[in-house]
Design a protein around this nucleic acid. Structure first.
Lengths: 353, 353
DNA sequence: CTGTTAGCGCTTTCAA
DNA sequence: TTGAAAGCGCTAACAG
């Protein structure tokens, strides 16, 4: 029917002109504030419909100096970790009338920066960042924070005197996972998923080391493995292959471990595959612990013992902290919240009776 | 250090004033076009840094009449279906210099509309919509299309004379899945995941029915099951419970089916749980087929036979069609692309030798 | 190489 | 109840 050629969209002024009123009157009708006679209102609405008028949010927000929109940057959308976070954030925000725009930055600092910029360019009222930190990205983030944009980071290293942070207690989670294995009598416990660059920053690994130390177990470097040479910052299911390869390496050691703690559930799943392939059984020959309690963990054979981190609460908290900053209800000092994890014991460490 | 009180951010004019040049000159430096003397450039950049200046994208885009941003609306971010789509779309777009904003609309028409509006309010150059269709949402989408915004829908019922559509061939996928079971000799084949309202619209179910018809198998209404009374439009992993309950119902029939086709992999996973719980084995007692080939499908016990739909290609295609519309390279007539699915045979239907 | 003018589409403010 | 004026922050187009 209507040949929808890309004509210029109608503006407020266009509508006003065809109705024969001032733009301001149309504005009042559209936004439902101020007094407009019933008669005019109807004429305006009719014209609006006829002309397919839609208000221009850019102009509107430019004038109003706010967008009621928050940006969320996540690193890997296929990771249940990110998606739970996104859902929790969205829910908390919509409750307060804010919209959420999500940007994905999968691979590089360049994408991080592009995501930050595009969101800030649209004048989001605030930013929640849950990507893995990297130098250039952090630099840009600092600039943005300096320019006055409220920011909260989730599960991410980043320091700035006006940026709040939320994270799970990864150190303690790693500690408890390892402790659990030690309690079961394991003495040779491997760690899968630690690259070489990020060991000091990987809290889960630090927790593992601390647990070993506490129980007087010596650290065997050969039992700590990860993707060689390259960064571990590969997204999503590809960490499954890290787990697979890592476990193969551990199994080929002269004295193989009797248990492993995998950096996350994907890694654990890969590790499990390698164990099975070697004809060994879990947990009798090798016990496996993961991290995150993704839905996958329930469906591995055997079901995976793992550390659950409270994603929903992290999301809610991040949203709340950000809104407080946006509405200016909060002191300028940065705040940091660290939330407890919970060990979920399943049959990959304790065989059923 | 710098007490970051929420002061008004610096504008182009502010910077120009402190440097003592015209705003236009600063603009040229910021955007790197036009000639500016090295000396001026440096002075400007210095002031920019000192004043934490960031350009106002709203004003910029208002003037330029484009944002180089595309909006994607998905229904359920925890579904691998959506995330693969999002990744493919993002990749194709970034290749052409476009940014992607993702909005989630999980539950209702109201959220659909909110997502559409917020994206359009930010003047995205185009919209990709992959939520499940519903009446009010469709109405708003039509208005938006009428107002001239380029739109592509993915895997979604929607008709409009300027809106392109991409989808997988769900009918044929359902047909092949069922055909596979028939080929294996099954005569009583159940379908799990069909509510009552949406049966006619559920192409996978229609394919199932067609396959039965083709082979002269009668349709037994009791073998078609789903969540009773309510809509099936419940997001994500909750369809697992639909599968579980549905399978329980089928197993309790006087003459139970020897195979089932589940509406999607999540449903299939739930069905598998129910079968195991009943002490039956797969595929000997009950064969199970899913749909989507999510990562989960590899990790069920036994691995799941399923129908893979080409999400990546759907995403790429959607992005390309949209960009063509945005740049006006395309005729106004709506186009529809339907892509082939592929049956992936695993051990949930064919036991290993 | 740099500046001036005008205006994107809307809303705030004040006046009628 | 309605309108006029001004300007949000930026850039295209032209002038110098």
């Amino acid at each position: 029917m209507s040949r929808n050629v890309r004509r210029k969209p109608a503006t407020l002024t266009d509508v006003a002109a065809t109705v024969g009123v001032a733009p301001m009157t149309v504005s009042r009708v559209i936004n439902g504030n101020g007094y407009v006679s019933e008669e005019t209102r109807e004429k305006v609405l009719e014209a609006v419909k006829k002309m397919n008028y839609r208000r221009n949010g850019l102009a509107r927000n430019l004038k109003r100096q706010k967008t009621e929109t928050v940006g969320l940057v996540i690193g890997d959308i296929s990771n249940p970790f990110s998606t739970e976070l996104a859902n929790a954030v969205r829910e908390s925000l919509s409750f307060r009338g804010y919209n959420l725009f999500i940007c994905i930055s999968e691979h590089s600092a360049k994408e991080d920066i592009a995501a930050f910029d595009s969101l800030v360019d649209h004048n989001v009222d605030g930013l929640i960042v849950a990507t893995r930190s990297n130098e250039e990205g952090d630099e840009r983030l600092s600039e943005i924070a300096d320019s006055g944009v409220p920011i909260v980071v989730v599960g991410r290293d980043f320091k700035h005197d006006s940026v709040d942070a939320v994270s799970a207690d990864n150190f303690n989670g790693g500690f408890e996972a390892t402790q659990h294995l030690i309690d079961l009598g394991h003495k040779r416990i491997g760690f899968i998923g630690a690259g070489f660059e990020n060991r000091s920053r990987l809290k889960r690994l630090q927790g593992y080391l601390a647990a070993l130390a506490k129980h007087g177990l010596s650290v065997d470097e050969r039992l700590i493995t990860g993707r060689k040479g390259t960064s571990d910052d590969v997204p999503g299911y590809s960490t499954e292959s890290i787990g697979y390869e890592g476990m193969k390496r551990l199994l080929s050691l002269p004295k193989r471990p009797t248990a492993v703690f995998a950096r996350n559930d994907f890694t654990a799943v890969g590790a499990i595959s390698a164990v099975k392939e070697a004809g060994l059984s879990i947990p009798q020959d090798i016990a496996v612990v993961g991290f995150d309690d993704t839905p996958l963990a329930l469906h591995t054979m055997p079901p995976l013992t793992t550390v659950r981190q409270p994603m929903k609460i992290q999301g809610q908290l991040a949203a709340e902290m950000l809104l407080r900053r946006i509405t200016g209800e909060v002191e300028p000092e940065a705040e940091e919240k660290i939330l407890d994890c919970e060990l979920i014991i399943r049959e990959s460490t304790v065989s059923q009776v």
